[in-house]
Amino acid sequence: MCDSKLFYTVIIIVSLVGITLSRENLSLTKAEKQKLDQFKDAVSKISFPAEWMQQELNLVRYLRARQWDVQRAKSMLQETVAWWEENNMKDIHNEDWTSIEKDYPLHTDGVDKFGQPEVYFCNVMFPQIPSLAFVFAFAEWDLRGAAVQGRLNRVIRWFFKAFDDVHQKSIEYHKLGKTNGTQWNVIADMDKLSRQQHLCIQCLRFYTELALILESRYPGGSDKLFVVNSPSIFQIVLSLINPILSKSTLNSLKVIGANKEEWGKAVYSHFAKDQLPENLGGTRKYSTVWNEI
C-alpha cells in the first residue's frame, strides 16, 4: 500500500479509445490515405524490432507528427527503431528492477468506470473510455537522491519500462477488438512540489527526457493532459518542455492551480472517485504488487 502522506502524484491515464466512443481521429481523407500507402511502401524494408511499429495506426501518427511528409515521417520512424535497439527496449521488461522498484514504486491495478483494467504507478492511474492507466506517487520519488547516487539514468529507464508496459497493454486491447485506437490521458498533481527534491539542476533532465520520448517515440499517444495544484515553480518545468512538445500536445495541456473546485470539474468529469487517490479527493487504494491487475 502506498504511503498515505503523498505530496506529488502524477497520474497518467491511458485511455484506450473505445469502439463506440472514439476520441482519436481515425478517419483519413483520400489524400491522406494515399500518403499512408506511400509511407507503408517507403518503410516496407525496415526491420522493425517491435510489431506495433509497422501497424497502420502507428504509421498514421508518425505521418501526422510530420505534417504528412512521407520522408520526414520515415526518418522519424527510423530514429525510433534506432533508439529502440540502442536502448535494448525489447529486454527492458526482463531486467532486474529490484533495487529501483522499492524506492520508486510503480503499480498496475484497478479498472476504470467502463470496467477496463488500469495501470498504476503507486498513485498513478489511467481511465476514460475503455482505459488503461499508470500512476506514481512522486513524493516518494527522490530525483535529487537518484542524481546524487548516480541512479538517475536507471530511474528514467524505469519510467520508460512502465511507459512501454502501458503502451503494449493498449495495443493488446486493440488487437482483441475492445478498442479501435489507443490514447492516453494524463493527470499530474503538483501539490507541494519540492524545488530541492524534484527541481534540482540534475533532476530537470528527467522531465526533458520524458517529453522527448513522448513526442518522438510515441507521437499522438496522449489525448488530454491535466496539471493540477500547480505552484508557480512548475513554470520551470514548463519552460523546459514547452519547446519539446508538439502543437497538438500543447493544445491538450491544461495547467490548473490549487483551486480544487476548478480542477475538480476537469478531473471528476473523467474519473470516478473510487479510481482516484485520496489526495485528489478519491478513495482508491493501491496494490503493493507490480503489474497486478
Rank of each mutant, 00 (worst) to 15 (best):
T179A: 15
M1T: 15
N185E: 09
V14D: 07
E32N: 03
K169E: 15
K178P: 03
F48G: 01
S222A: 11
E95Q: 10
R72T: 10
K178M: 08
G115I: 01
E278G: 09
A211N: 06
S170R: 09
W97Y: 02
G181D: 13
K169P: 00
I92R: 08
T179C: 13
Q235T: 14
N153W: 01
S75F: 10
E261V: 07
P277V: 00
V155A: 01
V60P: 04
M89K: 14
V10F: 11
I213G: 08
F163W: 05
I100F: 02
V60N: 04
K285C: 06
R61P: 08
V43E: 02
F163V: 03
S269K: 03
K40D: 09
Q71Y: 03
K178F: 13
K33I: 02
R195C: 12
V60E: 14
V227D: 06
T179G: 14
K285Y: 06
E24G: 09
R284Y: 15
G282S: 06
F160V: 12
M190L: 13
L250M: 08
W84H: 15
D142R: 01
S47G: 06
R64I: 03
E278P: 01
L143E: 04
V237E: 11
W158K: 07
I19E: 10
T288C: 15
V289A: 12
I187C: 14
Y8S: 09
A211R: 04
Q67R: 11
H167M: 05
